[in-house]
Simulated assay, not measured.
Amino acid sequence: MARFVQIIEFQTSRIEEIEELGRPSRTDGTTAPTFRRIIAAADRDRPGTYFTIVEFDSYESAMENSNRPETSDFAAKMAALCDGPPVFRNLDVQWEDTGQESDPAT
């Protein structure tokens, strides 16, 4: 299975509230989250524009995570704090380069 990345772009003047809202919802709940990692980023060139980059083992694990009640609840609350609707990018990972040299002895 190929890894999968979801990028969510959103605009808000209430980023502190979104950050506070997101902390517990990422790992709390009745079902375990399926993401590998989350990166939150601010656009340097467009103040008030943010990105959440979420990495999953597969598209299927991303859909499993989306179906968690905690994820749905967070998405609704986050949308209420945004200045417009978020934009979702759903990406199948084709290849990656970690930038780290591997040990030739291994």
Rank of each mutant, 00 (worst) to 15 (best):
F74P: 00
F4S: 03
P69S: 06
I18Q: 01
S58K: 02
V93Y: 03
S25R: 15
S58C: 08
T52D: 07
R26L: 13
E19M: 10
P86L: 04
R46E: 10
P86Q: 03
P33W: 05
Q11Y: 06
R14V: 02
Y50I: 02
I8A: 10
E70T: 08
Q100Y: 02
Y50W: 10
E19S: 05
E16L: 08
F35I: 02
D92G: 04
E9D: 09
N67A: 15
L21F: 10
I38V: 15
D73I: 02
S61W: 00
R44Y: 11
N67P: 00
G84S: 13
P24I: 12
D57R: 06
I7W: 00
M1P: 12
T12F: 04
Q11R: 15
A42K: 14
A40Y: 13
N90P: 00
R14G: 01
F4L: 07
G48N: 07
D103Y: 11
D97Y: 08
E96T: 14
T71D: 01
E20A: 14
R89Q: 15
E17M: 02
V54R: 03
G99H: 06
R46N: 06
P104V: 07
T106S: 10
R14W: 02
N67E: 14
D57L: 07
A80P: 01
N90W: 11
I38L: 12
R14Q: 14
I15Y: 05
V54M: 06
F56H: 07
S58Y: 04
T106A: 11
A42F: 04
S25M: 15
E20F: 04
P85G: 09
A2T: 14
Q11C: 13
S66L: 15
A76Q: 13
E20Y: 05
